[in-house]
Design a protein around this nucleic acid. Structure first.
Lengths: 166, 166
DNA sequence: CCAATTGAGGAACGTTCGTTCTTGACTGAT
DNA sequence: ATCAGTCAAGAACGAACGTTCCTCAATTGG
């Protein structure tokens, strides 16, 4: 039944997530994808429908493979400092970029991002036993630290001050 | 000596900053700029050299008109909660977008953004008398809250918990 | 071994991008 | 009144974009 594939679909999605996590959506061209992903144009469109289709799949993979484990780990965070450390040491580049750049222009992306962040908030709230708004604040703070590349372990500095919160 | 301008240069730059603050750099076309700014293509290129030239001027205007006043106000912030409130209620859309989306691809943007954030960090550190890394953490936290649109006054929730810091 | 199906390969599509060119209208100084 | 200089107006440029089409190679079921 037809020729066998020479590319691994999950591998392609993973590489796409890396590319999209590194620069803006419009900064990654289909040529870039074809070149770096080891998949042919035709196969890309046959498999994912469009550039946006591949982006959505890559985003969902990022959420499933990078954010979900973080949420699970947060479930057993003993205090705010630990939670902050967990988030700030996670690889959330694509989520961040999606939130700032794509969500305002793509409601489907916005929904995925909001759901993912809500899950993180919930995990923080449950683990620390703090109100929802404070949990959201902690998540936001961690994202802000990630945004700046967590210079000089800045996350740790805040974490120490937040310990009494737990 | 020549025809008089029919557009106000500062008005154009201000409108450009608004546009660039609302969506990604590549999401704002020159056509968009020409349409919304009341300046003609030719004048745009004559005045700013290129789309990127206009972007840089708009970014610098944003830093001078929106970030600088924030830094000044932070100078007399009595405690961490006040500082956080000041930052989270500022209009920093373009700075945020520039930091996440443009800085990785444009070293000049990266330099402007880094300098601006450093100035905020410094103001926070001076006003509160806290170490540099903690000040940077506070700035980062505020940026993270802005990133999520400060839902339900989340900034305030964190601010109350940070009061003992001041 | 042939027919049917699916992927690979690459050229080509129309559109939109940022930028430039050409033309004409307006202004101030000579 | 004229001339040089600036701006407005919009057509037009080549390049790059996302997408589609066509042809050939490879694989499986009859």
């Amino acid at each position: 039944m037809g020729r066998t594939r020479t590319f691994d679909e999950d591998e392609v999605v993973r590489a796409a997530a890396t590319l999209f996590g590194g620069r803006a959506y419009d900064g990654v061209s289909v040529d870039d994808l074809v070149t770096h992903l080891g998949v042919h144009r035709n196969s890309l469109y046959k498999t994912f429908g469009s550039k946006r289709g591949l982006y959505l799949v890559a985003l969902r993979r990022h959420l499933a493979h990078d954010v979900r484990p973080l949420v699970d780990a947060l479930g057993s965070a003993p205090d705010a400092a630990s939670a902050l450390r967990l988030i700030t040491s996670a690889d959330l580049g694509l989520l961040l970029l999606a939130a700032v750049e794509r969500a305002p222009a793509d409601t489907e992306v916005a929904a995925e991002v909001a759901a993912a962040l809500d899950a993180v908030d919930q995990a923080v709230a449950d683990a620390l036993g703090v109100p929802a708004d404070l949990a959201a604040a902690l998540t936001s703070a961690a994202l802000g630290i990630l945004l700046r590349g967590n210079p000089h372990g800045v996350g740790t500095a805040l974490a120490h001050r937040l310990d009494p919160l737990g």
